[in-house]
Design a protein around this nucleic acid. Structure first.
Length: 503
RNA sequence: GCGGGCAUAGUGUAGUCUGGUUAUCACAUAGGCUUGCCAAGCCUAUAACCCGGGUUCAAAUCCCGGUGCCCGCACCA
């Protein structure tokens, strides 16, 4: 489905819509409706079960979203999230300062103040890359972070977190104690991050307020966590730098063992496989649509030693789009915050020797994956529109209908209440024809429909059999009403990691 | 941010060029009759010209500004 069509469908069904819609909307901000909010919660819970549930030494915390200025100063966001810009007064185009000065200053403009950049521009008589005019305006800073006046006097400044990862680094010292001083230590955050994006676009793919699910694994570089074990032969879809440099753009399916043989650390590949399996086995993305895109030295942030972006091919957006990543960040973060805070964030090995833990970051864009779940699993099948969500992710898990409302209404209503009572997200519907009710549920991704009919009442007012209908196959079978919940339960549980904890 | 295009019920649209009657149609939604296992039929109802200003006897239609969306570029430590 095209992006417009998909978005219209999601709006119509109340999955999501623009924030402040009655005021014409606000760029880059979206609200989730009932279906979207429920789906999002399930994706977050499935992510938590899969990643945080992998080890007893992994913990999920919930930090504040606002941090003091010292934090973003230390993390580097205050300087690095700021791209100096130069605008042309003749044609009004705006460029990153780096682009304008690159010929005379190949090392870039990092560390230069705006007035120093201006000196470079004037001294070299630089011209506008667009129209060639020399009427270039004073560079100004554009920071992607939202800053907020803080305190009663509003005299301090706080920042909305530009990435949730920072909160995990801030929590490390406390969590080292809470987690009883053991490495590896995993700190996960599922929360909002905020960026004042220059051009928010493509709905959930670039928002100004978005949800990240991130797991930061702190470990001793002398004893990194993760062994491939049974997954050594797992074929990983990768597009590596060497291949790209040869102009080759297709995905290669490389056994995990070979990735290690090519020089990637085993612990890194282990987590790549774990993320691959999450995308494939939990979110249900077909392997052919997934690839891990290796970022080169130039493309990745300087503190990332290894970076593969997880990408999914999306029809609606016309190509591969990033939905997550695995970053080996070394000891950059704890060193920066150690320096910034003046606290020693190194820890003692059993031998007594001290080490600053390294960080492996698993990052996952919740909103983007929601869009991907719609793109991949929501499709027209002839007349039908079916959202083939994995059953445990579906916002509504069972639709319950009386075939003839005036006859089976009480039975069906009681059955709905019984299912809700045991934790099945059931929805009762008696409006319009039975076919239409199935169709509505298909579009909402509901995996099961239960119809109460004439024979249901034969054994008594609430003890008979009902028709259980499967969304994907449309197959029907008769099931005793009393056994329904137990029958559905296995399909509604989140998959759990079968890989051993990375110890 | 730049350039181009676009904006009409919940969704998709006709009408805009060439200003003029009660703003078209389909689906969806709600109610009724009927039917009863895959979007059946009939009747009825709800529901729209993005916001602000201007031109005009008269603006969905023309002009200006804003906002939002789409595409390309740029951006995405």
């Amino acid at each position: 489905m095209k992006s417009d069509e998909l978005y219209a469908l999601l709006r119509r069904r109340g999955v999501l819509w623009p924030s402040a819609e009655i005021y014409g909307g606000a760029q880059g901000l979206y609200d989730y409706g009932p279906l979207g909010a429920a789906l999002k919660r399930r994706v977050e819970d499935a992510w938590t079960a899969w990643f945080v549930g992998r080890s007893p030494d992994y913990y999920r915390i919930e930090p504040a979203e606002l941090v003091p200025e010292a934090v973003v100063r230390a993390s580097g966001h205050l300087e690095n999230f700021t791209d100096p810009e130069i605008s042309c007064e003749a044609c009004h185009a705006v460029f990153r300062a780096e682009t304008v000065v690159e010929k005379v200053r190949p090392e870039g403009v990092d560390g230069l103040a705006p007035n120093q950049i201006e000196e470079v521009v004037r001294a070299n008589h630089l011209k506008c890359p667009n129209c060639g005019s020399t009427a270039l305006a004073v560079p100004r800073a554009f920071n992607l972070m939202f800053d907020v006046p803080f305190g009663v006097q509003r005299s301090e400044r706080a920042y909305l977190l530009p990435e949730t990862a920072q909160a995990s680094y801030l929590a490390f010292a406390r969590m080292w104690e809470v987690g009883r001083k053991a490495l590896p230590l995993g700190i996960a955050v599922v929360g909002r991050a905020y960026r004042n994006e220059i051009a928010p676009r493509q709905v959930l793919f670039r928002m100004r307020s978005f949800t990240q699910a991130e797991l930061q694994i702190f470990f001793d570089p002398a004893d990194p966590p993760g062994r491939l074990g049974a997954y050594a032969e797992e074929k990983v879809p990768v597009l590596r730098v060497d291949r790209r440099e040869k102009g080759e753009g297709s995905t290669a399916f490389v056994p995990a063992r070979e990735l290690v043989a090519s020089g990637l650390p085993e612990f890194y590949v282990d987590h790549l496989v774990h993320l691959l399996r999450f995308l494939r086995e939990v979110l249900g993305f077909p392997t052919e649509r997934i690839r891990f895109f290796e970022k080169s030295d130039k493309e990745r942030a300087f503190y990332n030693r290894i970076q593969f972006d997880a990408e999914v091919h999306l029809e609606s957006l016309g190509g591969y789009k990033e939905v997550g990543a695995v970053h080996y960040r070394g000891d950059y973060d704890l060193r920066r915050h150690g320096d910034g805070s003046g606290k020693d964030l190194s820890v003692a090995r059993p031998s007594g020797e001290r080490v600053v833990p390294h960080v492996l970051e698993l990052t996952f864009g919740v909103d983007r994956n929601l869009w991907a779940l719609a793109d991949v699993h929501l499709a027209h099948e002839g007349e039908r529109t079916v959202w083939k969500l994995p059953p445990y992710l579906a916002p509504v898990q069972a639709g319950v209908f009386p075939l003839i409302p005036k006859e089976q209404r009480p039975f069906a209503e009681r059955l709905t209440a019984d299912l809700l009572a045991v934790g099945v997200a059931a929805a009762y519907d008696e409006a319009s024809s039975i076919g239409k009710r199935y169709a509505r549920m298909d579009e909402a991704g509901t995996p099961f429909c239960v119809t109460v009919d004439g024979p249901s009442l034969a054994d008594g007012p609430d003890r008979g059999t009902v028709t259980l209908r499967q969304r994907d196959s449309k197959a029907q079978e008769r099931v005793p009403a009393a056994e329904l919940a137990a029958r559905l339960a296995p399909s509604l549980r989140f998959p759990r990691p079968t890989m051993p904890p990375p110890l």
